[in-house]
């Protein structure tokens, strides 16, 4: 097995960090109070995973707060805006299916640092809960009311092109049955794919996300918080 490069670890770290940020935007905005708590839990898990990897790669706050958008390696999927709850859950399903492959591999990889494996082992358990949460919601929303079905199909169509950085055969094998159970129609494995961050691309949304996230830290360089 080839040991994951720092670039790969940064992709996982940034993916978790940016998705956690998006989920944290839901706090006090979720459709039920129980979902405020659930999304908070998932955001906290992802933030913990990101921090574990960033601490391995360098200074976590330097990396999070003082890099430019072009230097972030997260899949574009993770930076997509929240939209409605259907968008949030489809995005989450895609990301959870990605991490369901990432963490067990990392946890089992004897060539990576013990601290990284520790992060991955904990993340495997957390991811199992995230996946149960997102897949259950996608099914509920897809196979709920006419309105929820329409919204979830719209979300799926809009987010499908962003699967490129996370999809593999196993990913499709995880995601497709859930979408089928949700009575949704996928645009297909061959449908077009957006370019990703490894090629130096992002969506316009990341700049705003980082402008907000980094504003205070950058206004006081060198300060301790």
């Amino acid at each position: 097995m080839v040991s994951p490069t720092s670039e790969q670890l940064l992709t996982y770290a940034d993916g978790a960090l940016i998705l956690s940020h998006r989920l944290s935007e839901w706090m006090s905005n979720a459709p039920t109070m129980e979902e405020d708590i659930a999304l908070g839990n998932i955001a906290l898990d992802l933030l913990g995973q990101a921090r574990g990897l960033l601490q391995h790669l360098g200074n976590e706050d330097e990396l999070a707060y003082f890099r430019e958008p072009q230097e972030f390696r997260n899949p574009l999927l993770c930076e997509l805006p929240n939209g409605d709850y259907a968008h949030a859950m489809i995005r989450q399903l895609f990301a959870d299916a990605w991490f369901a492959e990432v963490w067990p591999q990392l946890a089992a990889d004897g060539t990576v640092d013990i601290d990284v494996r520790g992060v991955a082992e904990k993340a495997v358990k957390e991811n199992a809960y995230h996946w149960r949460h997102s897949s259950a919601w996608v099914v509920r929303l897809g196979d709920g009311t006419d309105e929820s079905h329409r919204r979830t199909q719209d979300a799926l169509d809009a987010i499908w092109p962003y699967r490129g950085e996370v999809a593999s055969d196993q990913w499709y094998a995880r995601v497709e049955p859930v979408l089928a159970q949700a009575t949704l129609t996928t645009p297909g494995r061959d449908a077009w794919i957006q370019r990703g961050s490894a090629d130096g691309w992002h969506t316009e949304h990341l700049g705003y996300l980082l402008a907000e996230m980094q504003s205070l830290a950058r206004a006081h360089p060198g300060a301790t918080w």
Partner: peptide, 26 residues
């Protein structure tokens, strides 16, 4: 202030706090 917390440690603490408040409400 969650999305502008100035360090990742503070962000985690604040996120957990706001989540606790939702739990208190429940």
């Amino acid at each position: 202030w969650i999305t502008r917390a100035p360090s990742l440690r503070r962000k985690a603490i604040l996120l957990a706090k706001v989540q606790d408040e939702a739990g208190h409400g429940l």
